[in-house]
Structure formats: C-alpha cells, structure tokens
Amino acid sequence: MKVPISFNKLPTSPSIDKVGVEERVARFQTRSIKNESKRQGLDLVLSMIDLTTLEGKDTPGKVKQMCYKAHHLHDAYAGVPNVAAVCVYPSMVRIAKTALNGTDVKVASVSTAFPSGQSTREIKITDTKFAVDEGADEIDMVISRGKFLAGEYNFVFDEIASIKEACGKARLKVILETGELCTLDNVRKASHIAIYAGADFIKTSTGKIQPAATMQVTYTMLMAIKDYYDATGIMIGMKPAGGISTSKLALHNLVMVKEILGNNWLNNEWFRFGASSLANDVLMQIMKLETGVYQSSDYFSID
C-alpha cells in the first residue's frame, strides 16, 4: 500500500538523455512479431483500450452507443474481448454506468476542469466527487501545467494529493499533458511528482493537444514507473492516450512495456490505451489474420 509522503521528502528526479531515449525507442520498433504472437497481442490491445469520447457535442445517445460498442466490438466474429473501460465527461458517467450495468467494462471519468485544468482547487475537488458519486470507477485528472512550468511543483503535488483523497475507492489516473510540458526532463519530473503524490496511473495526454502519446514520452514515463517500483515495490499503471490509432503503433507500445516493466504490466489492470479509433483498426487486423483478406472499414461499426 502506498504511503503518502510530503513534498519536501520527494527524492530528486533524474534528467533525461533525449538522444538515448530516441535510439532506444527506435529499437522497439524493429522487433519482428510473427502472426501467432501478433494475434495474441491484438487481443491484448483490445482488452486494454479505454474507449473514449470527450467532445462538447457528446449526447446521451452517443455515450450509450459507445458503451454498447465497448462490449460488442465486432459481433460478426465471436471471441473478441471487451475493452477495459469507457472514458467520458462527468455529466455522462451515470448514463455510461447504466448502459454498462452487468458487464466487466469500467467507467472512467475525466475531471478537474478537463482539459485545461484552469480552475480552483474547490471546483476540481467538487468535479471529482461528483464523478465518483455518479459511479465512476476511475478518475482521469489533469495537472496544472501552468503552475508546473512556473516551477510551483509543490502546488502540483498538493493538488494531486487532494484529488486522490477526493477519489475515495476510484483509481486515479494523472494526465500530465506532455505536449505542453515541452521537454522530456519535465515529463520525467511531472511523472515523479504524480507518482509520489498518489497517482495509481500516469497518463500522457488529454488527446486535445499535439503531440500526444509519442513513444519517447511513454518511454520516459515507463522509466519513472520502473524506478519507483525498484525503489518501493509498488506498481503504478501507465496509459498513453491520443495519437495511437494503428495496431502497429499499439503493438510497439506493448513491446516497450514488456521490455521495460515486464509481464506484470501486460494486462488492463496496469496498462491502458486511451483511444477512439484504435479499436476498429485492431479489429480489422484481427479479421485480416482470421480471413487472410485485407479489410474495409465499411464492415465495422462507426466510431
């Protein structure tokens, strides 16, 4: 069990060798994956997806449709796993929870004035408690990037700790929004702060800012998780989100997780993909392996 520590006891975060990261990441992308492992990998990817809709135009109908898709990915072919969770705004949590009643699909809710995080502590806590009360199993919070870049690390630390408290039993994913953090050093430092402040998961991006989940960023965050695990024996989950829309990229990510963190992280308890269009691409690849014929999006559900 994680013991909260205060900010002044936080160990220092190491700096990052960007060139080294790029070389290592490039090597993950050259692994040859044979058909049998590919098939298993694709099933695993599907089971790790947080099917996401975070639009101003979301309606109850859209959320219900996505929830149906979450446990009926491709009814034309039996034996496809369900996704791990759906990810929605707090106002849609109750609808999603009702729609997913009786399934093993979890409901995650973004909170803390997502996506900018530009609001007061009280509002962020209220936002989080509302989502939890509505039935959210997981909370995806955003950090205050402005405060982080201004060097107010203790503010960011305390904020995460107070949201963790507001979460109760819900698991907390902390979104660093790496596209706004500018350097890998900052990504590493933010990961470090989030992990020590109480994050159960660290997550790259909101999906609203480019670049999002590049492999370099995910690698840096995985290394922060590994170092924490080596120091304390406590596992932290990882969720790259945004920009992962092809099976190939998702498989590269799995290779990276396996080689850095090992098999313990290769399940949806500890690793997730935040994505909206990835599921269909994975399904098309699975059907390609099953039928031997390249597929068309005409025969898969609309996202």
Binding site: G292, V293, Y294, Q295, S296, S297, D298, Y299
Partner: peptide
Amino acid sequence: PGLAAHMD
C-alpha cells in the same frame, strides 16, 4: 489476387 480479394 490480393488486390482482387481486398474488402476495401
């Protein structure tokens, strides 16, 4: 053959 079989 691959082009002829392609679903798209």
